[in-house]
Design a protein around this nucleic acid. Structure first.
Lengths: 226, 226
DNA sequence: TAGATTGTTAATCGATTAACAATC
DNA sequence: TAGATTGTTAATCGATTAACAATC
């Protein structure tokens, strides 16, 4: 597979392509053109062809793309075949929800272990994964390759646990703690899921629309000669 | 407040500014320059000044920005003072986690109601919010303004519930269902929290790094005259 | 005052879009 | 073959960065 430098924007679109292609496949669609795919995703055909061309030639002139084949190519690009091993740290509300409901294996991951500090929770099983004591974490990290650590501990514990993970060579942290984890010169990749950032962006758009509507109403009133 | 057309990228950075400023304030920092703030966020000073200048003049030459004042300006820009009303639909694992752990009021929101279909759950209270039956949802929407609906129902129910919300004038949907909700010509704003998209992007970066390391190792081996 | 740092205009860079020859 | 649609090169657009006069 080509690995030229691909822009962040392109990479962020890949999972959307995958999701849409899965959906099309499930709906019995076997081929699709960049034009048609673009319509369904709100993107231009050009952009879609440009995006794919970062990684190879997956289409056929005059025909378009084979849905199933393209889907599988994107899965490979995303690394879904690599069997990455994840562990989860902090089986609180959100950690528990992820263990129970998020199907790691759908995305090529194996959830290999979970850790928590609460003796009440340690030893319990969720979806076949036993919760271990935090005391065992360090030994576990030394003995096992961990590609991704899902960080779902409380805010206060976030930095300390993150440091432990980084110092012990964890490949990446999937960070749900709403704490900025920018260990500057570390090889560990950090991917943030900041609920509040998402909600606040949404808040901005809602506020913007209200302002627009108010401005429009004011203009209309003025026109009516009020 | 100025409401010129602001790019999406700028808006997505605003919550990060807010978070960092809150942190600085808590740490007793009262003033900061764009240079210094940029260092802490991995942005250029130019970009930071450009971003803020979309909304007004918040700094002072030779001094920089007052942390607390700037924080409050950004809070206003994001609409945190508007008292937006949210409801939550689907008190399953993730919905429950949000009700219990996500502090809506920290971001200026009021969680006004929650709905679920399961009679076991209906009537229970979480953090002062009672769970109502789904049967009451339509009436509720007709009688109350809802700025944001938090959609945490199972995948299968997502589209139908979304349609109900959109048809009844909900301002925005905060979508946790991993289903693409692109009701094309509706005024309802949709903000997606796609866990799997986030994980797959992370997966790409991990795979990329492994490939780079392998390539490097191969080059080193060749150099060693193997 | 001298030094620092803003807000803004201009320059650069990168990403998206358009166009089109190649070809299925 | 004729029509459709790709992959890619060139053109455009927008976002980021640099520069600097204004001024605290």
């Amino acid at each position: 597979m080509k690995r030229i430098k691909v822009s962040n924007n392109v990479i962020r679109r890949l999972p959307r392509y995958l999701r849409k292609l899965d959906e099309l496949k499930a709906g019995g669609v076997s081929r699709i053109s960049s034009f048609n795919l673009g319509q369904q995703l709100g993107l231009t055909p050009s952009q879609i062809r440009q995006d794919f061309s970062c990684f190879g030639e997956f289409g056929q002139q005059g025909y378009g793309y084979n849905v199933a084949a393209l889907r599988d190519e994107i899965a490979l690009i995303l690394g879904m075949d690599r069997g990455f091993r994840a562990i989860l740290i902090g089986v609180g509300n959100i950690g528990h929800a992820l263990m129970d409901n998020f199907c790691f294996s759908d995305w090529g991951f194996t959830l290999a272990a979970a850790f928590d500090i609460d003796p009440e929770i340690v030893g319990k099983r969720n979806k076949g994964v036993a919760v271990r004591s935090m005391d065992e974490l360090l030994d576990y990290l030394r003995e096992n390759r961990v590609d991704v650590a899902v960080l779902t501990v409380p805010k206060e514990a976030a930095s300390a646990v993150a440091k432990l993970l980084i110092d012990n060579g964890v490949g990446a942290i999937w960070n749900f703690t709403n704490v900025e984890l920018t260990e500057p010169n570390s090889r560990t990749i950090v991917e943030n899921v900041h609920f509040s950032d998402s909600l606040l962006s949404l808040s901005y758009f809602v506020a913007e629309r209200l302002d627009e509507e108010a401005a429009q109403a004011a203009r209309a009133e003025r026109r009516a000669g009020m």
